[in-house]
């Protein structure tokens, strides 16, 4: 039996340990946010600080200097992330369910094809040719959705998860007259919610952070994703700063001296903020043992 004093000591130690851990996660996040509000020269002179010596909204002002573009980018990013993830997870779920069923005679062949793309990608150029010259998806919103609609790795993860669902559940549903789609929707989907939630979150993060599709396929600025737009703004300013420093002129080029360092952090806040709010929504699905108790005696 531990004494009251020992117990109290352990509680205090635990609290201290958790506070230290919490700081490990929270302090960098706070520094990112405060740096984004720090005046550029003060940042260079004084380094990164939790409480900035001089604050400035200049980085945000420059990022949002063309609010229309930023709003477009948010809309495109949200739509492509949500729609793309939904369709992608649905397709991968249906496919993974089919190849997880022993009753499907072609499951090995289909699995082989999927595994093949997992090991050997088509490469950028053939994919680009297919998407732009054959499917006509270049510079369209659809490229954000269709491109990478199914991911072989996620598909295999889902198939493995479905395989762990007892076959007897499906058989009993069949005996009750359920068809494949009904079984998938009413039996498999609820039981596989953790797998769907995990793959959805990973897919959503992939799509939210995607800038490469815009770089390769998109020319119309209103179809840029947020990450690409932010990256381009920063690179433009770096380039303009460089050009301004080299040029010979008799005009005041103060406008061009952009705070690129604090802007990087403002970009992190602008880009990561919405995802930080989405993450807790998925958290409750990350639980195990949903099938416990679903099969009786």
């Amino acid at each position: 039996m531990r004494t009251q004093a020992e117990l109290r000591q352990q509680v205090v130690l635990n609290i201290i340990l958790w506070i230290v851990c919490l700081f490990g996660f929270i302090v960098p996040l706070v520094i990112v946010i405060t740096t984004s509000f720090t005046e550029e020269n003060s940042l260079i002179a004084n380094g990164y600080r939790i409480i900035p010596r001089e604050t400035s909204l200049e980085a945000y002002r420059l990022l949002f200097r063309a609010p229309g573009k930023m709003i477009d980018a948010y809309i495109v990013t949200i739509l492509q992330s949500v729609i793309g993830t939904f369709i992608s997870v649905l397709i991968m779920g249906l496919c993974a369910y089919a190849i997880s069923r022993k009753a499907f005679r072609m499951r090995r062949t289909v699995s082989l094809f999927i595994l093949f793309t997992f090991l050997f990608g088509g490469g950028l150029v053939p994919t680009y040719i297919l998407n732009t010259q054959y499917l006509g998806l270049g510079d369209t919103f659809l490229i954000h959705i269709v491109h990478n609609l199914a991911n072989a790795f996620y598909l295999i993860v889902m198939r493995t998860f479905f395989k762990n669902i007892p076959e007897s559940l499906i058989e009993s549903a069949k005996m009750d007259g359920g068809g494949e789609f009904l079984i998938f929707a009413r039996i498999i989907f609820p039981l596989a919610m953790p797998a769907f939630a995990t793959i959805s979150l990973l897919g959503l993060l992939d799509r939210w952070n995607n800038w490469f599709t815009s770089l390769v396929y998109i020319r119309d600025e209103s179809l840029y994703t947020l990450q690409f737009l932010l990256q381009r703004i920063l690179r433009d300013f770096e380039f303009i700063n460089a050009i301004a420093a080299e040029s010979v002129t008799n005009i005041d080029i103060q406008l061009f001296q952009a705070p690129t360092e604090s802007m990087r952090y403002a970009m992190v806040v602008v880009a990561a903020g919405p995802m930080l709010m989405v993450f807790p929504l998925f958290q409750r699905y990350f639980v195990r043992g949903l099938t416990v108790g679903s099969v009786k005696g």
């Binding site: 680009y128 040719i129 381009r232």
Partner: peptide
Amino acid sequence: MEIVPPPDYRQRFDLMMAASE
């Protein structure tokens, strides 16, 4: 005409050449 800012230019040109556009 397509205008590509300098940081992305090389990649765009290489891709167009590779795709024989």
